[in-house]
Each structure stands twice: as C-alpha cells, then as structure tokens.
Design a protein around this nucleic acid. Sequence first.
DNA 1: CTGTTAGCGCATTCAC
DNA 2: GTGAATGCGCTAACAG
Lengths: 331, 331
Amino acid sequence: MSNIREVSRAAGVSIATVSRAISSPDKVSETALKKVYAAIEKVGYRPNMMARNFRAVRAYSIVVLVPNLSNLFFATVIRGIEDAAQQKGYAVLLGDTRDSHDREQEYTRLVETRQADGILQLRPHTPGKSLEPDSGMPMVSACGCENTPYPSVRIDNTGAAREIVDYLITQGHRRIGVLAGLPDNPHSNDRLQGYRQSLENAGVPFDPDLLVNGDFTMGSGQMAASHFARMKDRPTAVFSMNDEMAIGCIQGLKSAGIRVPEEMSITGFDDIEFARYSDPPLTTIAQPAEELGRASFNTLLELIEGKELQQTETVLPYEFVVRKSTPALRR
Amino acid sequence: MSNIREVSRAAGVSIATVSRAISSPDKVSETALKKVYAAIEKVGYRPNMMARNFRAVRAYSIVVLVPNLSNLFFATVIRGIEDAAQQKGYAVLLGDTRDSHDREQEYTRLVETRQADGILQLRPHTPGKSLEPDSGMPMVSACGCENTPYPSVRIDNTGAAREIVDYLITQGHRRIGVLAGLPDNPHSNDRLQGYRQSLENAGVPFDPDLLVNGDFTMGSGQMAASHFARMKDRPTAVFSMNDEMAIGCIQGLKSAGIRVPEEMSITGFDDIEFARYSDPPLTTIAQPAEELGRASFNTLLELIEGKELQQTETVLPYEFVVRKSTPALRR
DNA sequence: CTGTTAGCGCATTCAC
DNA sequence: GTGAATGCGCTAACAG
C-alpha cells in the first residue's frame, strides 16, 4: 500500500509538500503541484483515512441507533440521515439495537472509543429506560417527542393526532377506538394527548375501553382487532398510531367478518408506502421521514463541531392525507 | 481524554504493561494487573480505537451496499449482517446507493482509503453495470445469483420459481402471467428460467404477452395489473418476482374490478412481513433473509482475514409458503 | 515479568 | 514555497 512518502519520493519533493498539495493546494507552487499529482497517479496513491482521522481526532462517522431496521418509517429516516451524512463526508454506522438496552450501550462505546463522533437516536426518549444525555457525547433525537431532554427533530405529534381525530369526528364518528403503543412510549403518549384533546373539544367523554395498547407491529394491530370485534358497543372508527398496526388491524377485522371501512373506519400514522396499497388505502399522517433524518444529522453535525445550537428543537411540518379508509359515517 | 500514558502514570507502571494488561492479561503479574485496572478506573480510561485500528491496519468495519434501504427484504438481510458483525466486533457502514453507480463507487473508496475492510453487496451482479470484483478488495454478494463472479450467498432462485409455478399448475392454471424485474436483473432472469422450466415440464408453451417487466416496487406491480386487466385472454394466475409487486398488482387488479384470488391467483417472492397481512395473504417463497446476511458477513470476514474460502458459493434453503392467494382454479 | 523504544501515515510547526 | 522534524495513541520487538 502506497503512502505519502512514496509519493514524495516519486515526485522529488518532501512529504510536507505532498500533504499540502492534497489539503491546501493554494499553498503550493504550480510546478510542485503538477509533480505531486503525476506522482500520485503513478504510484496509485490513496490517502489512508484511518491515519488522517486518527491525527485529526475525528472519526468522520456517526452511529444511528434504531430499535428495528425493518420498520419502514425508521428505514426511511435513516435514508435521509445517510444522504445528509454522505454529502458532508460522514459515514453512517448502523446500530440496530433490537430494543435491547445492552446493545444500545454497546454502540455508545463506539463514541467513547472515538470510532464515531456522535449518536443519532431514533428511539424516542423514555426517562429511566433510555440513554441519558451525556454532555460529553453529542446526541440528537431524529424522532423526538414533547419531552426529549436533548436536541431533537420531530413533528407535532399531538397536533397531528388531534387533526386526524377531528376529521373522524367531522365524518360523523363519536365512538373512536385508539390503537396506541405501550403505555410508556412517548410518541404514543403525545398522540394520545391529541386524541383526548380532540374528543374533549367535541364534547365526547373518554372511554378507557376504547384504548388498546399495541407495540407498533402488524401483529399487535391484529390482536387489537379481535378486542374491538368482540366489544358489545363497538367503535365505528379506530385511530391507529402507526400504519403497520392499522394494516394488521384491518386484516384482523376482516377475518372477524367486519367490513372496512363500511363498518369501521381506520386511520394510520407515518404514511409508509404500504399505506397507499392497503385495502382500503389508509387515511394517515405523512411524516417527512427523510427530512427528519437530514435535519437531525445536520443538528448533530453542529454539535460535533462544537457550534452553539440555534434551536434545541426543530419541529417539521407533517401532512394529513385522506384516503378511502375513512368515508363519512352513514346512519 | 485520557490515554494509556496517563494510566501508566497513575498505576506506576510502564505504558507497555498497561497495553499488555489490556490485550494479554496473562502476560502480566497479578499485582501489576490490579494496579492497572485500578488506574483505568481512576482516570476513566477508554482505549482510543482509532489509534488501535490505525496501528493494526484494520478498520474493523465493513460497508454494506444496498440499492434501497426501504426495501424490506434488504433491510432484513442487513439486520442479519449487523447481528453477525456485532458479534465479531465489526461495525457496519451503511451505503444506500439509491441505484446510483456513482454512489456505489463513492462507497468503494471507503475500502481503498482503509475506512472499511470489505464490502457486502446486496445488489445482484449485472455484468458491465456492476462493480467488478477487484482482487484487492474483499467483496461478497449477500443475495447472489447464478452467475455472480465473486463469492456469494444465495438461494436457488430458479428452483424456487419452478416450485411456485409448478404449484400454480397443480392448482389447475395454464395461463400464468409473470411479473418480472427489468430485463437485465439477474434475480429476475434466474427466476424467469424457473418459470420457463416449469411451463416446459407441463407442456405449456411460453407466451411473451404474459411477461411484464416491473422494477420490484409496488408502483410497477400496479402498472402491471392494468396490463393484465386489459388483456383479451387474461391469465388466471400471476407469478410476481417479489412481494411488493404482488401487493401492488393486487391493488391494481381490484381497482380494475377483478377479484383476487377468485378471478386471478397471485404469488409473491421473499415473504416480507406484509405478505401475511395482504388481502388475500400471499403464497410466496420465504427467503432466509437474516441468515443470508449472517452467512455473507462470515464469508466476508474469512476473506478479510486472508483465509482460503471453503466454498465460493453458499446456497441456503428457502421455504415455499402457501397462503390464500392461490386457491385451486375452478372451471 | 517489565520497561524502553521505534514506528504505523499523516498534518503541522518551525526554520529556511 | 519548501523541507525537516515532531507527535497523535497504540502495539510489538527487544533488552533486561
């Protein structure tokens, strides 16, 4: 493997000149530049980034902590991260934690041992259970919630949920089921607040029987469906907190002989691509997933570079998408 | 940031002893060990991996090249890669190439510049268009095909396709549409061969009108549906080369007023989680996605470590999964 | 078993 | 503009 010294020999200049020719060509004479470039070509030189980064005390890479890469919303956020990182010359280290605290801890070590410069956390912050923000470790939440205790990028989850439930009420629904995440999930809680606000505005009392806790998988959506199907006083609509659960729920309802959307409307959240191809296509909240990724990377980069953050919280706009899963209620 | 020298001072031993205490404790006396560990604790030492890797001339990381991270099959393969890599102390650098040859080239540089030790390629090899295998660059295909010109892990795509089409024939079908990838896609070609073999075995002539080229997205499946719907002599079944296109196709057929599976059976490939929640649930080929990832990483690791490969091609078993999208043809 | 020392490839400081 | 020399943190060779 050729190094800078070989190039210097081939070019007949010092290694300092070669180094300068590469990183600050304006400080080198035309003639020297030409010789260096020719020599680089000749010996097939590729700079050793490990050495360069080692000296710069900068890994030029970040870690992405994601609970589950097979979640399409997360995968899309990561694409955005990767896009922004690539533009800025950073590499993205994948940390699929599989919801394991140990694995999360393990990946944290990459930063402590200088293999990475910072962390992008896709799991929303749960006090006690989550990685606590550590002043020495640059960390940004790419899918924040109302109480993220460190810099974050997010949408207004509560507002989005309120908007979607408001719409269901407009369509004539009063008994609206809610398919939430686990009770300690921050996204779920933010969205649940929007649900409750919407009901309250409409003068509809909150009925705990209508709340089912899932875990954002299609399987849990399917389980929830049998709960709703068995109820004596069934909801006429269900607000699911992500598209996967909504899709699982639709499948479960159909299996139970309930027609969707004729007998039960359903809404999702995220607007993954499958939402459009579901039967019926899902009314949902389109999150700017790639943009969340890009913005969170840029925030993290500022942190890494030691800049003062303009804003510790970035709230991006979402879009409410109406499809066929929510027709007007016929009575 | 504390380094090995600080530890040595705090422990009252030389830096060599500290280094040995960490990497080969059996070569250090009990007393020295204790002092070193105490000192590490005291100064909060974390080894600088950049320095260590630099010296070892090993990045302990690999690059995964994936055309599109939002493809669930790929995402699952990557989870397997990540799992195996983590166990062996390797980090996974994400290279979402977005089907861009330039980006692929860009990521290749990570290996040339020693930021990574090897490449795991998820895109099947297309002669001319793909990264050509370079003896200096360890590279393994995680989703290989019949003619991958470098080490690969794969399933028997042709056999799987044959099996699925055989089954459709058993169910009474004779006019079987095929929803393929682009004409130069190797996976598509391997599977198409299986399709043709099956037809030939059954004495059914190949009808080019029944072949539609998609691009493995749901959108292209939907487009294909309108082609099939418009045909005067429609197929009674469609073999789609992945689940996404099958799901898009179902949606398109339903929109065109064709009932699935009553009027048209359909099969997928991959067995992504959505296949089970599709309406109707898809008959498909379950690829051992995570295992493909794990196995390909282990192969790559052997290459990186300079071992002689036992086998240059690993063929893993798939599973044929029958669901409700393929009832027996009623005539 | 332990300490001293050289050197990995590079950027940078300081003379010239 | 250019070159010689230094050191980043670590491991390994060598000497004791």
